[in-house]
Simulated assay, not measured.
Amino acid sequence: MRVDIDGLDVHRGGRRVVADVSIAVPSGTVLGLLGPNGSGKSTLLRAVSGIAAPSAGRVRIDGTDTASLSRRELARRVAVMAQEHSEEFEIPVLDLVLLGRIPHGKGFGRDSDHDIAVAEDALDRVGAGHLADRSFSALSGGERQRVLFARALTQDTPVLVLDEPTNHLDIAHQLELVDLVRGTGRTAMVALHDLNLAARYCDAVGVLDGGRLRTLGPPEDVLGTDLIRSVFGVESTAVAHPGSGRRHFVFDARTPSDTPDPSTPAPDTDHPVPTEEGISTP
């Protein structure tokens, strides 16, 4: 399903956290959201998923304004893996993952054999099948992340909204998880901190800075040392990966905050007009 974000503003605590963001995400593509802490990534994803109400603008899924959907209807379209969650759920892992089937149920009652099979398959896919009978509260941070991703997969929605899903994961499981996201074939919006991971796995990246969309496009067009310096305050070196030849960034040092940076680029307005097939600003 296609996701369209049009002129979105979101306020939290009386402060404008997301400002006039517009992004079009075609069906089946993966958009990585990048930006420093406090740039608005999580708030934007909360608005897309319906957790936070926008103060202006709208979000459409396959042309339907999400504000017109009931929570149940929206939950059948968008599954969320949030950054904030309780770490003290005294609930077996399988039961927690089965919560993803609630939007598809017809009321209270026992989980069907089909629901259980979907949940068990999701746990196996994320390498957490052996955790099914464990208590969620007893898991490590990385194990919790895999279980929560399994719950999102169990919800069986065409759109995934994932807020820092690789947090707490070791390198092997980070690569495994982003491979899984791509392998689902679903439309995905993913907040990430690892720029090299985003460059390798995302069809496009959007860089947020101060709540505004700084730039948007294919990683090879968007990510560069000037952007990293101006948005993240870090000096970096771009090198060609010896295996793939793709651009890879080595981070050197923080940019001195008291040194003006004359090379800071203006917001990107020079990209070609995007085609309908590409992730774009409307």
Rank of each mutant, 00 (worst) to 15 (best):
D20I: 06
F249D: 09
F108Q: 04
S137L: 13
P26N: 07
P282N: 11
Q155K: 08
R186E: 01
R229Q: 14
G245N: 04
A191V: 02
S230W: 06
P242K: 09
I102W: 13
R15I: 05
E90Y: 00
D258F: 14
L123F: 07
A24F: 08
G38Q: 09
G185C: 11
L195D: 03
A198L: 03
L208H: 04
Q174E: 12
T29L: 15
D268A: 14
T29M: 14
S22F: 12
E120H: 01
F249Q: 10
S112I: 06
A67L: 04
P218K: 14
P36I: 11
L45K: 03
S135W: 09
T255V: 15
R15H: 13
R212L: 06
D252I: 15
G206W: 02
V17I: 15
R247H: 03
M81D: 01
F251Q: 10
D121R: 14
S236T: 13
G100W: 12
T269A: 13
G63S: 10
L33Q: 10
G28E: 07
D65K: 07
V78P: 07
G217W: 09
A253I: 04
L197M: 13
A266H: 02
A119Q: 03
T259S: 10
D156L: 08
V181W: 09
M1T: 08
V205I: 09
E87V: 12
P265L: 07
Q145K: 11
L175N: 08
L94P: 13
S27G: 15
V93D: 12
T187S: 01
I5P: 03
P158C: 03
G7Y: 00
P158L: 03
A172Y: 09
D163E: 08
D221S: 15
V97W: 09
A191L: 01
E73Q: 14
F136N: 06
V205G: 04
H130P: 01
G50D: 02
L69N: 03
V93C: 12
L223W: 11
G7N: 12
R200W: 00
V273Y: 05
A47S: 11
D113I: 01
R212V: 11
I51C: 00
L223M: 15
L162S: 10
S49T: 07
L123Y: 05
T154N: 06
R151T: 10
L195Q: 04
A238V: 14
L162Y: 09
T154M: 05
E88G: 00
L69S: 04
G7F: 00
V30H: 02
D95I: 12
L160P: 06
P219Q: 05
V93A: 11
H130K: 12
D6Y: 00
L8D: 07
R110C: 00
S112R: 10
P282V: 05
R182T: 05
D20C: 08
G278P: 00
I279K: 05
G14M: 11
H104E: 10
R151P: 09
S135L: 15
R72W: 01
G129N: 07
G57T: 06
D65C: 09
V273W: 06
